[in-house]
Every structure is written in C-alpha cells, then in structure tokens.
Design a protein around this nucleic acid. Sequence first.
DNA 1: AATGAATGAGGGTTCATTCAT
DNA 2: GATGAATGAACCCTCATTCAT
Lengths: 199, 199, 199, 199
Amino acid sequence: MVKGTREKIRQASLEVIAKRGYTGFSLGVVAEHLSISKGVVTYHFPRKDLIFVELVEGYFRDAAEYMGKHMVIDRSAIDALESYVDSNLRYVAENRHATLAIIHIIANHRGKDGELAFADKDNGIYQPLIEIFEYGQQEEKCFRAFKPGLMAMLVRSAIDTLSGRIATGGIKDLDEAIKETIRTFTLATRRDGNEQDLE
Amino acid sequence: MVKGTREKIRQASLEVIAKRGYTGFSLGVVAEHLSISKGVVTYHFPRKDLIFVELVEGYFRDAAEYMGKHMVIDRSAIDALESYVDSNLRYVAENRHATLAIIHIIANHRGKDGELAFADKDNGIYQPLIEIFEYGQQEEKCFRAFKPGLMAMLVRSAIDTLSGRIATGGIKDLDEAIKETIRTFTLATRRDGNEQDLE
Amino acid sequence: MVKGTREKIRQASLEVIAKRGYTGFSLGVVAEHLSISKGVVTYHFPRKDLIFVELVEGYFRDAAEYMGKHMVIDRSAIDALESYVDSNLRYVAENRHATLAIIHIIANHRGKDGELAFADKDNGIYQPLIEIFEYGQQEEKCFRAFKPGLMAMLVRSAIDTLSGRIATGGIKDLDEAIKETIRTFTLATRRDGNEQDLE
Amino acid sequence: MVKGTREKIRQASLEVIAKRGYTGFSLGVVAEHLSISKGVVTYHFPRKDLIFVELVEGYFRDAAEYMGKHMVIDRSAIDALESYVDSNLRYVAENRHATLAIIHIIANHRGKDGELAFADKDNGIYQPLIEIFEYGQQEEKCFRAFKPGLMAMLVRSAIDTLSGRIATGGIKDLDEAIKETIRTFTLATRRDGNEQDLE
DNA sequence: AATGAATGAGGGTTCATTCAT
DNA sequence: GATGAATGAACCCTCATTCAT
C-alpha cells in the first residue's frame, strides 16, 4: 500500500513532535526524517501552521469518531461517565504518539497575535461531560450536588494527565489505571446516604 | 530597596514565559522588557539553561517552604491530604505567573540530549502524597485500597490542571474550586461501608 | 474565439508585472492568476527569461507597427517630430498595462552575466529621432544647432516618464499633455532669430 | 579614519544596488561584499526595509542640503530654473552610484501592501519647480503660459533620465549635457514675441 | 497539452552565544 | 557590572526548474 507523501508528512510530524516536543519540531527535521527535500514539506503545507491545523483537527475528528463508536449513552449517566473515561483513555492508549503530539501543539502553538491558537479545541471537549453530569444530577438523581463544569475539569485533568503518562509509557497496567480512574470519579460523584457526613 | 539585576531578570523571565509561552521567551525579549542590553542577561546567566534551572529550583524551594508552613502533618491522613491540596492550590493562586511559567518550562525545556530536563522535578513531588496514602491505608485504615502511586498521580493531575486554570484566570471562585477538589478526593479515597458495592 | 494558453500567459504576465512590479512577478502568481498549474507555464516557457523576451519583443514590434501607421515622415522634420511624440504617447496611452510592464522589465531584468538584458532595446529607439533631427538641421535648416543624440535623449525621457504617468493613471488630460510636450520640444529645437540671444 | 560598520553597510548597499540592481541586492551579497557575517547586517538593520529607508532619506537629505547651497533663488525665475537643473545634475554626477541605487529602490521597493513605498518621495521633488514656474509666470512674466505641474514633470523627467545616463556613465561631456538641457527648457518656457506663432 | 510532485538554492529573520571594551 | 558588536546556525518560506505521468 502506497501512502501519499502528504500523509507521510503528517505521520512523521506527529512522531517528531511526540519525541522531540513542540520546540524540536521543524520542517528540516521532518524532511530529514523522511529523507526528502525540505521543499517537499512546504509544497504540501505552504505554511507551517497548516500542519498543526491538520493534525489537531484530524486528531479530534478521529477521537470523536472513536468515541461515537465506543461510548454508551443510552443507559445510565453513570454508565455514560464510565464509558466516557474508558473510551477516552483507550483511544489515547491506541494513539499514544498522536496524543502526546497534540498535547504539545495545543499547549504551545500560538497565532500571529501571540494567543494560543487551539485553546478553543480544548474547551469544546468539556461539553459531553457537563451534559452527563447535568443529566445525572437533574434526571436520574444519581450524582451528588457539584458544579458540573468544575467536575468536568477534574475528570478531564485526570484523563489528560493520564494520557500524557500513557503516551510517554509511564503506565504499566493500562486496564488497572483506567479502572481505578473510573472508580475514583464514580465514588466522587455518586449520591449516597453518606454524603451529608462530610458537611 | 534596590532589586539586583539578576533578580529582575528572573522576575521578567517568569512574566515573559507566563504571557508568551516557552517559545515566546528569548533573551532579547527579556532584555527589551527590562530596557537593558542583551549582553547583561548573558552576563548574569552565561547560558540560557541556567535561567530555567534557577527559576524551577527557586519555585520548588519556595513552594516547599510554603507547604512546610501550611501543611498539617501531625493529625490524620485525611487532614494531611486536605491540607496538601489546599496549600498547594493556594500557593499556586498566590504565584500565578510563576506557576504558569514553571509549567511551561517543565513541559518544554530539554537538555542537549533531547530529553525533558525537569521531568524529575515533577516526579519528586509525588512522594509526599504517596506517603500520606500509604500511612492512611496501613496505619489509620481510613483510605480504601488503591495504588498510592496512581492516586497520587490523579491528585497531582487535578492540582496541576487547576493550577493552569487558576494561573490563566479561568477560575472565578477559588475557595469553591479548592473545596470541591478536596471533597472529590476525600470521597474517592475514603474507606466506608459502601465501598464493596462497587465491586 | 479561443485564446491559446500561451497568449493568456503573456497577457496575464503583463498584468501582473504592471500591477505588482518586476519583483512581484513569479510563475506561481501567473499560474494562480489564470487558475492553471504552474507546470503549464513552464511547459510553454521552459525558462522564465523567455516570457520577458517574448513580451519585450512583442511590445516593440507592435509599437513599431503602430508608429509606422501613424507617423508622418513625408512632410517636414517638424511634422515628423510632432507625429513621433504624438503617436508614441498615444500608443502608450492605448497600451498602459503593457507599457508599464515593459518599463519594469527593461529596468530590471538581467541576464546570467548580471547585465541588463534589454538595455539595447532601449537604445535602438533613439535612431528615428536622431535622423529626424539631423535631417531638420542639415537639410531643412528648421532646427537650431544641438547634439541630435542628446536632444533625442531628452525627448525620449519626456516620453518615457510621461508614459509611466499615463500608465499609472497620473495624467488626467491626455491631449493637453501631449500638446504641451510637443510644444515644449518644438520651441526647444526650432531655429529662429532669437536663438543667438541666448549665447 | 575608521568608518563604522553601519556606514559601511550603507555604502556597500548603494554599490551593490547600483551595480546589480534592486533584485541583485540581498543581505547575503552585502555581507559577502564586506566579508562579514550576514547576522551583522541584520544586527544593524533588523529589517531589510530599514536599509532602504535610511538610504533614500539620507540621499534626499544630502541632495536638499546640496541644492540649498548651490541654488540661486534670489535672482530671476529663469536663473532659478537654470540653477535648479544645474545643481541637480551636478549633485547627481557627483553621486552616481547613490543616485542609480536610489532610482532602483524608488522604482521597485514595495511595502507589505504591495504599493511602491517611496512613491511620495518622488512627488515632493516637484514642488520647487512648480513654485519657480508660477512665480515666473505671475510675477516676472518671463515664462509663457503652460501648466506648471506638467512642465515640472518634463524638467524632472529630463533630469532623472539624464541622471540615469550620468550614473551609468553614458554621458561623456557632462558640462555640455547640462548646458543643452538648460537651454532646451529655457527656450521651451520663455515668453517671447514669437510664441503666438505656434497657435 | 497539461499536471502535480519534488527539488535545491537562496531569500530574510531570529537567536543564543562569544568577546573586546 | 554592563554594553554593543559580531557571529553562525537554524529557522520558515519563495521560487525557478526538472520530471514522470
């Protein structure tokens, strides 16, 4: 199977960024990595930014597709939360290089105005979680009272940090880590009789 | 009181990195920011790395000092955990710029070998948490069974991500955010009768 | 009638050069301007130079043809001079874009040796004027004594500069400008009784 | 006498542009010409444009100073016109390289908007001539009726084109060329009894 | 006749670093 | 302590040109 050069550049870019970081990424390194001329890269991506745009958008598109296939949304809110964390981390585990690269890009790439260019990408990702929490709090009454936005941030923080660890190979037992993460947030969010003890 | 040039450079560096990111930081920008010659910077810090080293070490030294003053370690493990999260986040809130800058440095700065230069700094920070968890599990029996290292990572992830939000001004009600974070991990780690329900 | 691609490229090149200058001209811009591939341009003009050669030669060929139709050479030298200036400027006015482009090319394009490639084209254009002046001085005695080559240069300078103005739209009343230019050189070259006053 | 590097770069730039044209000018060529690093050039002129700005402004400043010293403005309008042409061309003759370079810059350099960056410099130069003509027409009645702006353009065109010739060494006898140019425009502008013959 | 891919040289620019003063 | 000058490597990007299809 012949992969187009453009796709090769995408792939190599992800690898380079994952391995050498945002700063270590340059057209020259990618070209060298692929044993092609530097001009080939600029031929396919007239401006360096466009590589980032394509990588980030592609990553989120694929992730959304994966999530759509694996997330459980027709059962309880708790099941939804569990499957959200589970499918998220599994997608990450299956796309370690890409994930690490995307994290680097989002955290570092800035537009000409000096502002982070992909900050919004990061925000949009909270929405599904917030909806799960609101549904669980208002309809199913299975979640205790907490600010959905804040809890979503905590869940995401766990997923993102764990993603980094997974991506860098710092996690040995993936299933256990996922299981424990899910339990952590299940315990933290559920509504039960003991809740008022904490007041 | 006259602040030494060296200190001024440190301060300016933190501000620049916090505002413009790791990539936007350069000796020239710092010099311009202070209205001094670029040579002055290299006079005080012969190599760029040394600025980072000093900033990161200074930050963790100050943080450790702050924690030493504010952490409760002579009461229960639960109190220790609570005060760890609390003092951590309060220190961050009081040092937003510095925190953001340090996060950027740790996430991006690499040595000549291409490896992240401050990855170890990040690791050492887990130790106190691990000890709290182990003590709470083995001695006080107040925590349920979980891998201390993993839970420490989850707590740190929450603190670090929240730190970023706080540092960038994304958190409106600091006290509420801290309180909710603490409750989240209190609920997630405590040992109670309902725990086995989840098996 | 379908215009051949080659002709389209010529036309587009003139427009691009006229609007963006010699420096702003590139094969890519022309291709984009025509919504064709860059390869098409190099197919028709294997080397960039060849576009310039064809444009310049075509321009002077057309100009010569136009002059041949409009110049009066069978009457007096004064009439010849007048019609030379007049037809020259009218041709320019009718071919503003092309004229501006050609001016840019002649002033900037250099061969591999670094010398202006079309400097000679510019020189050849003086000959008709010189002949008119010599004839008027020696045969008709209608012109005063002056170096024909020098006066030819002055006339050309007026025409060329005026051409630029006309081409860039800086001239509002074309007829008036032409009339005044002709009068200027008629007065400057004629032989009359007052001439010796100036000695 | 030690010339500063900045001044050397200015000088070398003028030479390079004069010899190789606007297109043949590059930071690399200048650096090589001076046997210095390319970085030195950008150290003194952070952006390439600034070289052009400094060259053009310096040229016009020097020219204005020279004109101020050599122009006769306290006698008749005719004398003023003569001295204007004379001092202009003599300044050019004494600054051949610079003049040629400035001509190239003005004709080619464009800002980011794509418009000629020094077009205005060229316009301001007409003002003195226009004033001379208006004064001669209205006060002294020594000039015939013509549009001052148009005639100014014709005079400038002669000067500019002659400047180019002089700069490129195409003029052998400078004094004769100047004298003839002055006579040409003296004859072309003066008011005498024969004027109405041309109506 | 037309196209897209690939190339490599050269462009301007940024920047950490060295050094003499 | 402080400074400005100089350096050279690396950066992104533009572009004429070559070539297989």
